[in-house]
């Protein structure tokens, strides 16, 4: 399965597997393993707006409700979309 994914990835990258340096191929295979799959990224299937103003504009146009998350953290704010503090 890993081999199939790697070959698919090479095609996606538009690279010729035959001509590649083994070092390049090895990095591509490691990247393929390291990139999270769609299931683990499901959080990003929610419909996020980057600000309340943006959310309000879209909610009005699309006739949808808004869910606003509020949080304070004395050390630093959290970016709920990207995930980094």
């Amino acid at each position: 399965m890993r081999r199939i994914l790697s070959l698919a990835f090479l095609v996606m990258m538009g690279m010729s597997a035959n001509a590649q340096d083994p070092q390049v191929r090895r990095i591509q295979e490691r990247f393929d393993s390291a990139r999270p799959n769609e299931k683990s990224l499901a959080f990003y299937s929610l419909d996020w707006a980057m600000s309340l103003a943006d959310a309000k504009e879209r909610a009005r146009k699309e006739d949808r409700p808004i869910l606003l998350i509020l949080n304070t953290n004395i050390t630093a704010g959290t970016n709920f979309f990207s995930g980094h503090t």
Partner: peptide, 15 residues
């Protein structure tokens, strides 16, 4: 996730 899908999601976070 399924429960939250109808919403436009947003957040505010600060110190």
């Amino acid at each position: 996730l399924e429960t939250l899908r109808p919403f436009v999601m947003t957040w505010w976070s600060g110190r």
